[in-house]
Amino acid sequence: LLPSFEIGAWTEDDVYCWVQQLVRKGDSSAEMSVYASLFKENNITGKRLLLLEEEDLKDMGIVSKGHIIHFKSAIEKLTHDYIN
Rank of each mutant, 00 (worst) to 15 (best):
L1R: 11
L1D: 15
L1K: 09
L1S: 12
L2V: 13
L2E: 12
L2R: 12
S4K: 13
S4T: 11
F5A: 15
F5I: 13
F5S: 14
F5Y: 15
F5Q: 13
F5N: 14
F5W: 15
E6R: 03
E6T: 07
E6V: 04
I7H: 09
I7P: 08
I7D: 04
G8E: 14
A9R: 12
A9S: 14
W10N: 02
W10R: 01
W10D: 02
T11H: 03
D13N: 05
D13T: 04
D13R: 03
D13Q: 09
D13E: 12
D13P: 05
D13Y: 01
D14T: 05
D14R: 01
D14L: 01
V15F: 05
Y16E: 10
Y16Q: 10
C17T: 11
W18N: 00
W18I: 00
V19Q: 07
V19P: 01
V19W: 06
Q20C: 08
Q20H: 08
Q20V: 05
Q20R: 10
Q20W: 08
Q20S: 11
Q20D: 09
Q21H: 11
Q21K: 08
Q21S: 13
Q21D: 12
Q21T: 10
L22H: 02
L22Q: 11
V23H: 13
V23E: 13
V23S: 11
V23W: 07
V23M: 08
R24H: 12
R24T: 11
R24P: 12
R24Y: 12
K25L: 07
K25H: 13
G26H: 14
D27F: 09
D27I: 14
D27N: 13
D27L: 11
D27H: 10
S28E: 13
S28M: 14
S28L: 14
S29K: 10
S29P: 14
A30I: 07
A30R: 08
A30C: 09
A30N: 08
A30F: 10
E31V: 07
E31W: 07
E31S: 07
M32C: 09
M32A: 12
M32T: 05
M32G: 06
M32P: 01
M32E: 07
S33T: 08
Y35C: 06
Y35D: 03
Y35S: 03
Y35G: 01
A36P: 15
A36I: 02
S37Y: 07
S37A: 08
S37W: 01
S37C: 06
S37I: 04
S37P: 12
L38T: 09
L38I: 06
F39A: 01
F39T: 01
F39I: 04
F39W: 15
K40L: 06
K40F: 03
K40V: 05
E41H: 12
E41N: 05
E41C: 05
N43H: 15
N43D: 02
N43T: 01
I44F: 01
I44Q: 04
T45M: 00
T45L: 02
T45W: 00
T45G: 03
G46C: 00
G46N: 00
R48C: 03
R48Q: 10
R48I: 06
L49F: 04
L49D: 05
L51A: 13
L51S: 14
L51K: 13
L51C: 13
L51Y: 08
L52T: 01
L52S: 04
L52Q: 00
L52R: 03
L52Y: 02
E53W: 03
E54I: 01
E54R: 04
E54K: 04
E55C: 06
E55T: 09
E55V: 06
D56A: 03
D56P: 01
L57G: 02
L57F: 11
L57M: 06
L57W: 00
L57P: 04
L57S: 05
L57K: 02
L57Q: 10
K58W: 09
K58Y: 12
K58R: 14
K58M: 05
K58C: 08
D59R: 13
M60D: 00
M60Y: 04
M60T: 06
G61A: 02
G61D: 03
G61R: 03
G61P: 05
I62M: 05
I62R: 01
I62V: 05
V63G: 06
V63T: 13
S64R: 11
S64A: 09
S64E: 14
K65S: 10
K65R: 11
K65L: 07
K65Y: 09
K65Q: 12
G66M: 11
G66L: 10
H67W: 10
H67C: 07
H67T: 08
I68Y: 04
I68N: 01
I68P: 03
I69S: 13
I69N: 13
H70G: 13
H70D: 09
H70N: 10
F71L: 11
F71D: 02
K72F: 06
K72T: 09
S73L: 09
S73C: 08
A74L: 06
A74V: 04
I75M: 03
I75C: 00
I75S: 02
E76W: 07
E76T: 08
E76G: 06
E76D: 12
E76Q: 11
K77F: 07
K77D: 08
K77A: 10
K77R: 09
L78D: 00
L78G: 01
L78P: 06
L78C: 00
T79Q: 15
T79C: 12
H80L: 10
H80K: 13
H80I: 09
D81Y: 07
D81Q: 11
D81W: 06
D81G: 11
D81A: 10
Y82K: 10
Y82T: 12
Y82L: 05
Y82C: 10
I83E: 15
I83S: 12
N84V: 10
N84D: 13
